[in-house]
Design a binder for these strands. Structure first.
Lengths: 161, 161
DNA sequence: ATAGATGCAAATATTTTGCCGCCAG
DNA sequence: CTGGCGGCAAAATATTTGCATCTAT
């Protein structure tokens, strides 16, 4: 609920490869009603440079337009999930049961988190793409969503103080 | 299933590679007090052939000894997590916010879940090991825990009925 | 006009905590 | 003996739902 400063440190700063308004266009193209609240939330998700939890999403949305409630945040996140437009993470439960959300980029990335300082870094790899192909082939599954989270001690936290 | 020796596909019924009593010995070796309740819970986790949620663990424990409460389940799971002896999953939130737990085997495996029928199978791959090495090297992180979950439509669910 | 979205409050679901008596070592 | 452990109940956290009202199309 309250923000935890120790975990604000995400160096993620992922570049948003999409043009602005990507999510709004996606939903529009699917004939989904675009309400005032939804536009605000889509904008928040579209411009976020890192994963956010429901509370952070609510706060950012209310800064743009106070007429957005928590319930609508959850309902809209659910809508986006059902359409495969956002990913849901929990970062190895490092910070309790909170879930995080981020707009689904063109390529999957792995979340690499330090279990001590909480810094989260995103990592892309061709090897990951190969692994997914192998899984798809060997398990006979048509993959729609993947999530990889790695925890450990980062270089800084291993350094003797 | 596949004859390729580089990886192995298993169904949900993972074989427990450890000798019975593995967890109990691990904790004992670390000088941790072994109470009646803990012994029961360790046995449940040791003999489970698939990931269980907190409620399933409680039920199995109470079948062995009714004097185990839900609170103790959570506290013991937390203990095992802190000692890195079990893994915690949420299987892509396919089944709500429930968490699942399984005793940590000698080698990581990926959970591959069908988003329609909910079947979960485990998958090991040399490629996965390589990927982890790459992450460790490139991110400068000393990996202690990893989790990969893949969702999609399994072969059966893709078949026209 | 109307199907579908929102807000409010209450309900759920799951996990955690305070406190005290009890037991493993 | 004694410090950690377990049980109970209550709290905390996170998310979902019923229902009346509003709004995008």
């Amino acid at each position: 609920m309250s923000a935890t400063p120790a975990h604000r440190v995400s160096t993620g700063e992922r570049i948003n490869h999409e043009l602005p308004g990507h999510l709004e266009r996606e939903l529009g193209a699917r004939g989904i009603r675009l309400t005032r609240q939804r536009r605000v939330l889509l904008q928040v998700m579209d411009t976020a440079r890192r994963h956010l939890d429901a509370d952070e999403i609510l706060q950012r949305a209310q800064k743009l337009d106070p007429r957005v409630t928590r319930v609508t945040v959850y309902r809209t996140l659910d809508l986006l999930k059902r359409h495969g437009l956002i990913d849901e993470l929990d970062l190895l439960h490092l910070r309790g049961d909170r879930h995080f959300y981020e707009s689904h980029g063109p390529r999957d990335h792995i979340h690499v988190a330090c279990i001590r300082c909480g810094k989260v870094r995103e990592f892309e790899s061709e090897l990951y793409e190969q692994l997914k192909s192998q899984i798809s082939r060997d398990c006979g599954i048509e993959i729609t969503v993947t999530r990889t989270e790695v925890g450990g001690l980062c270089a800084d936290c291993r350094k003797p103080r």
